[in-house]
């Protein structure tokens, strides 16, 4: 033992207690400071969107009716719901953007959910421990790829490959953007599902095997159902990640705000719209407030879906701990 480390109880007692008080103040201060900032994030994102409700100048052009309900004259649905924020009569319909977000999210989840869960089941039930030690860091590496790199890859490589293989009219479309998004969602689905499956108590498996079930039956009919809340939570969290993801969709989505249900048309999501337009908008404009309202919408949606996911995970953890 090093001499410096010994605490001399008789000398400098007062100094030690003063230092202790001081550090309490420092930590409390830091804690409250961080809490304050977290509260500010809520306040300020909403604040900039507020003129939609309070400022008559702004709410004349940008309001909830305009965002979600209003149709302009037109034959097709495509002409009726239009996002065209710059022009003599700006049109602020969120419908094409919401549709774009949902299309990309749909493809992304369609790709990531089955593969992510299958990989998680394999890793937790069948992979030898040595292999498992490699799988997790590798998936973390995949999660560590910046989304701008995935966007770049989808834009340059994936889009050409998909077009050559399937003959899409548009190079950038919902399939392309959604698949790239799916790559970003895979680690989310995998990690959370795998954690859930690993937390299923051993005696579930032992009981099933003792009754004569095979390893596959045990995995499929015992472990997977027991871990279902976690799997479900992983889908919900992936959904939250998908609707907020920006760079991939900004680069690989084709940037066309059109009201279309086809997955082979180009798209524009809510997040990509904010990213593309906020840089050029006039401060305090109806357009500015509309974009902040879009951000608020994303904030609320992701916050709600994350809370739901976290709640399910927490409940499952408590239940599993109570049983094991």
């Amino acid at each position: 033992m090093n001499d410096r480390r010994k605490v001399d109880l008789t000398r400098g007692v007062k100094g030690r207690f003063i230092r202790d008080r001081l550090m309490t103040v420092v930590f409390t201060g830091a804690g409250w400071f961080a809490i304050l900032f977290i509260a500010l994030i809520f306040v300020f994102t909403f604040r900039e969107a507020l003129p939609i409700f309070t400022d008559p100048e702004v709410s004349k052009e940008a309001n909830l009716h305009e965002f979600f309900v209003k149709r302009v004259e037109g034959e097709t649905i495509e002409q009726q719901f239009v996002w065209q924020p710059v022009g003599e009569v700006p049109k602020f319909s969120f419908i094409p953007l919401i549709l774009g977000t949902l299309k990309a999210t749909f493809v992304g989840l369609l790709f990531a959910c089955p593969i992510g869960v299958a990989a998680a089941l394999f890793s937790s039930e069948f992979a030898p421990p040595k292999l498992r030690e490699w799988i997790k860091p590798t998936i973390e590496l995949l999660a560590g790829i910046p989304s701008v790199v995935l966007g770049f890859f989808a834009l340059l490589v994936l889009a050409s490959w998909l077009q050559n293989t399937f003959g899409f009219t548009y190079r950038l479309n919902a399939w392309n953007a959604g698949l790239a998004l799916g790559i970003a969602l895979l680690p989310v689905v995998f990690t959370i599902s795998e954690d859930g499956m690993s937390s299923v108590p051993r005696h579930y498996r032992e009981g099933s095997l003792a009754l004569g079930a095979s390893r596959f039956q045990t995995a499929w009919k015992v472990v997977l159902p027991a871990a279902l809340p976690a799997v479900f939570a992983s889908f919900v969290l992936a959904f939250g990640r998908a609707i907020g993801e920006t760079m991939i969709l900004l680069m690989a989505g084709g940037n066309a705000a059109i009201t279309s249900f086809s997955l082979s048309d180009p798209l524009r999501t809510l997040s990509a719209t904010i990213a593309a337009e906020l840089g050029e908008v006039v401060f305090g404009d109806p357009h500015y407030s509309a974009l902040f309202f879009m951000g608020t919408l994303l904030f609320v949606l992701t916050f709600v879906s994350n809370s739901a996911g976290q709640w399910v995970i927490g409940r499952m953890q408590r239940r599993m701990q109570g049983e094991s």
Partner: peptide
């Protein structure tokens, strides 16, 4: 719980906060 949920809020929303605040 605020911290746990904040970890999932889209990064673009933080960009909006940076601009607004």
């Amino acid at each position: 719980s605020a911290v746990a949920n904040l970890a999932g809020v889209p990064s673009i929303v933080f960009g909006l906060f940076g601009l607004g605040f």
